[in-house]
Amino acid sequence: MAFGPSGCEGEVMNLIREQIQPYADRIFTDALGSLIAVWRGTGDFREAPEGEIVPKKLLLAAHMDEVGFMINDIDENGYLYITPLGLKDAGMLAARSVSIGTERGTIPGIIGTKPVHVSPGGAKMDSLYVDIGAVSREDAESMAHIGDFGTYRSDFICFGSRGLLKGKALDDRAGCAILCDILRELWEKNERYPYDICFAFTCRNEIGMDSTRTAAYLTEPDYAILVEAGVAADVDGIAENKQGAKLGSGAVISYTDGSTVYDPAFTNHLIATAKMNRVVYQPLAGHDDPGNAKMVMNTRAGIRCASVAVPVRYIHSAGSVMQESDYDAVKSLLRAQLRRMHI
């Protein structure tokens, strides 16, 4: 529910910081606004099997930002015009109830649309505007400014009989929540591994400027797992070869994304972990969400990278849908993986 379009993740970060502060050994923010929490390792690598590599540091990353828009103009009648952030389809925004983040907190607005009588299906990205109730430019400027961020207003709703959850920004708050859960559980059981674990909550993923890269530079991990929302379109009406991940079929373990091929050995290792621990998983190759992995993999002298995702339907819309059991599967998989990082 928190407000966090790309570039404006402060509210989300504060919320996460509040949640995990008591559990982290160290918590800090980097120059781009990522929040990084450290769970120290014992530094005792003596138990590692002969000849196997054990990471000195593992990075788990999820991005805090969501798709949204920015105010780019205000007209004489007090309507605010917008530039999308990470959104390409005008229909996703038109007629929505939205929030705009202003100096004095968020205010509600409605994205205007021409009536269907005049212009059916006519919403175009560059003609979208927000009605905040302002009656003139001056009136609007007393409430919001050019450069202010905005995103959907959408209730978080549990529905149906198999634990479906609907909300905005499930991409990638689902990942953020899993990371928070894992850190809390480690603390509760005081589970220490030889290696350090860095939890990075990153920014600006949706506009392709993900700060996972800088978080990776700063924390110097030798392994990284990106915890994402995976595109699921396993719905009647979509060609089978385009359906991507399936809701209810467990953790998505990706071989590729739009930008790169993940470390195959690490990915296969994750799949083995899932099998050994009877975690429901689904391997996926070739969905087209241009992730941030490429930049992470090439950071410093190179980082071995894999991705685990919660399948989410209707990603980037105000009504994204996920299933609770998939969330639990991703969490279980990661917890199991932490126990066998000898690759």
């Binding site: 595109v231 060609a239 209707y314 819309s317």
Partner: peptide, 19 residues
């Protein structure tokens, strides 16, 4: 009961204009 209209991210799924 509650329902939500399916909303596929056309760009990520490489949907054709018709789809």
């Amino acid at each position: 009961i509650y329902g939500v209209v399916a909303a596929h991210p056309a760009d990520l799924l490489r949907l054709s204009d018709e789809e």
